[in-house]
Simulated assay, not measured.
Amino acid sequence: MANWNDPRTTQRGMGSSPSLRGEASGVAYDAGLRRYMLSIYNYMASGVLLSGAVALGLFASGLGYALFASPLRFLIFLSPLAIVLAMSFGANRFSAGALKGMFWAFSVLMGMSLTTIFFVYTGPSIAATFFATAGAFAGLSLFGYTTQKDLSGMGTFLIMGVVGLLIASVINMFLQSTGLMWAVSFLGVLIFAGLTAYDTQMLKRQYYSVRGTEFVDKVIVMGALSLYLDFINMFQFLLSFMGQRN
């Protein structure tokens, strides 16, 4: 970036070319950062829309009932997790093209698993929750992108919160406690709201490490996956509050 505090950048006439080069460099970095972040958001939004289209299509066609009445439902529920783990631990080994293919496969499988929400909640309440989540996600991501506050200290706390949510959810499968369900949903919304801002800031910072390298395409796909997970989890937890049951 240009050094705006350097008095040499205000020179005019002969000797002013370093300023021009510095300004051009700053503009190039800003343009590169915008393209990088827009690519992440485009992949993420496309993945969410693909999942939504698959879920709605299966429900409207009646195929969703057949799928979830068969043993295939276990494969549908577990496959997205398997893909996330493979992408997370194998990102360095896979090519950018392979990661993109896995991301689209993950989006389709997530859409298939999300078909179940149409069995439980009314269509209008699902739509209202989706748009509420989209608005909250946009605001939180914008905050993470623009804030000067370092959010890195939140990372460990938020990841521990996710682990706690998983443990509490498993326990509640046996307890069937309504109170614990509401507590998990409330904390889930807060945790994934925090992760949205945190992940956005981390992705922005990561750009300066990977720009101009072969890793940038991989980081874009993995960044889209992170934001997709933040969005979809926040949506599902928020649906517990806003969703009207059939």
Rank of each mutant, 00 (worst) to 15 (best):
R205E: 07
S209C: 00
F68Q: 05
Y43A: 08
A127Y: 12
M160P: 00
G139R: 09
S61M: 11
L78T: 14
A96V: 03
G123S: 09
A28T: 04
L225S: 01
I232T: 07
A45K: 03
P18Q: 06
A28F: 02
G144C: 09
L142P: 00
S107R: 02
V120G: 00
Y228I: 07
T178P: 02
S16Y: 06
L50E: 02
G243E: 05
G144T: 10
L165C: 09
L238W: 01
F186V: 13
S185G: 01
R245T: 14
G52H: 03
G188D: 04
V189Y: 01
F68S: 03
N246E: 10
A224D: 01
D217F: 02
L225Y: 01
N42T: 15
G15W: 11
A132I: 12
V216S: 04
K204N: 01
M242T: 13
F77W: 07
G153C: 00
M1P: 12
F94Q: 04
L114M: 14
F130T: 11
Y121R: 09
R12Y: 10
Q201L: 08
G179R: 05
Y208L: 12
T156Q: 08
M181C: 00
L99I: 08
S70D: 12
V84E: 06
A127T: 13
A31E: 12
R35V: 05
V84N: 04
L195Y: 10
L81E: 04
L56N: 05
A132V: 14
R73S: 13
G194N: 07
A183S: 12
T146I: 10
S113N: 07
V219I: 05
L238A: 14
G243R: 05
G62L: 11
V48S: 03
L142E: 10
V184S: 10
T10A: 15
L229P: 02
V184I: 15
M87T: 03
A55V: 03
T156K: 14
G144S: 08
A28D: 03
T146N: 10
A69N: 14
S152T: 13
G13T: 08
I76F: 07
L158P: 09
M14S: 13
G101C: 08
M102E: 06
A53C: 08
T156W: 00
Q201T: 10
V163D: 00
T200K: 09
L140I: 05
N246S: 12
F74V: 11
M202S: 13
P80E: 12
G47R: 06
S51A: 15
S51K: 09
S61W: 09
P7W: 11
L165P: 03
A197T: 07
G194S: 08
E23Q: 04
I126R: 06
M160F: 10
V170P: 00
A2H: 02
T156M: 11
L229T: 07
F174H: 05
F59Y: 15
E23I: 02
L151H: 04
G101K: 08
L229S: 06
F130P: 01
G97V: 08
F186L: 15
Y208S: 11
L63N: 13
T133F: 04
Y207F: 15
T129G: 09
A98T: 15
L63S: 13
L190A: 15
